[in-house]
């Protein structure tokens, strides 16, 4: 293919892509065109090696994709949790200080003060495994083995009464079959239909409401840091 033909082909491909992603292209900035589309590969970067991908690609999806081979029991998880996690999350996952509460809270999502925990709120168990393995324990991330992460997830299921048997073993085979109670309560962003009334062609300009009354003040809550002070600066 001549370089002109390649350019033309690239142009067609870009045109198709733009057409397919109509919803997004409508939002594209009008000021200043995007840089010219490259006609061919830039030849930058190098191929990622399998060992490198394995080292970083630890993410896990709800369908179990990405789970490493491994296993751990509730009992093993309990021991690990008390040793590695309880100082922040509490012995029973109830949270210490302002650190996250991990268990309990079922049935509180419509309450005045919802308690959003793994058992009461999180939709997918894979999130727990993914997060523990990438970021926990806080300040010593990626120090747990795959089996230890399985054991901790098993214990968290137990703390949330989703698994009762302390001999229960969680592994890469049974993982995806476990569903969390609040999984069905999530739905995709629908603001553009459910909040359509906020698109209002003619917002009121005159005598729009009754005489307003002050019904609440931030100063009565008194939780604002002193605006004049701040961290020491030199």
């Amino acid at each position: 293919m001549s370089s002109w033909a390649r350019l033309l082909a690239a142009g067609i491909a870009v045109g198709l892509m733009t057409g397919l992603s109509g919803a997004w292209s409508a939002e594209r900035p009008r000021v200043g065109a995007a840089p010219a589309e490259p006609a061919a590969k830039m030849g930058l970067g190098r191929e990622a090696l399998p060992e490198e991908i394995a080292a970083w690609d630890t993410d896990v999806r709800p369908d179990g994709r990405g789970l490493p081979v491994g296993r751990g029991t509730v009992k093993q998880g309990d021991e690990l949790f008390q040793e590695r996690c309880a100082s922040c999350h509490g012995e029973f996952g109830q949270g210490a200080g302002r650190w996250p509460v991990l268990a309990g809270g079922q049935g509180t999502l419509r309450a005045d003060r919802p308690d959003k925990t793994i058992g009461s709120f999180w939709p997918d168990l894979s999130t727990v495994y993914d997060y523990i393995r990438r970021a926990m324990p806080y300040g010593n991330a990626r120090s747990l083995t795959d089996d230890e992460a399985y054991a901790l997830v098993a214990f968290l299921l137990n703390l949330n009464d989703i698994v009762k048997d302390e001999n229960f073993e969680l592994n890469d085979k049974n993982f995806a079959s476990i569903k969390l109670p609040n999984a069905e309560a999530f739905f995709d962003d629908d603001r553009e239909t459910s909040e359509k009334k906020f698109w209002n062609k003619d917002p009121c300009m005159r005598n729009c409401r009754e005489l307003p009354k002050v019904t609440g003040k931030a100063i009565s809550v008194d939780v604002t840091p002193d605006g004049k002070s701040g961290p020491k600066v030199d």
Partner: peptide, 30 residues
């Protein structure tokens, strides 16, 4: 080919409504 449902897009950054359901993928800032 599908979202990962990470901690930051499920347990956080989802919008719990009064009826107990939660809106997810609320990416755009109004």
């Amino acid at each position: 080919d599908q979202p990962w449902q990470t901690r930051e897009e499920t347990s956080k950054y989802t919008d719990l409504l009064a009826d107990g359901r939660s809106r997810k993928h609320t990416f755009i800032m109004d």
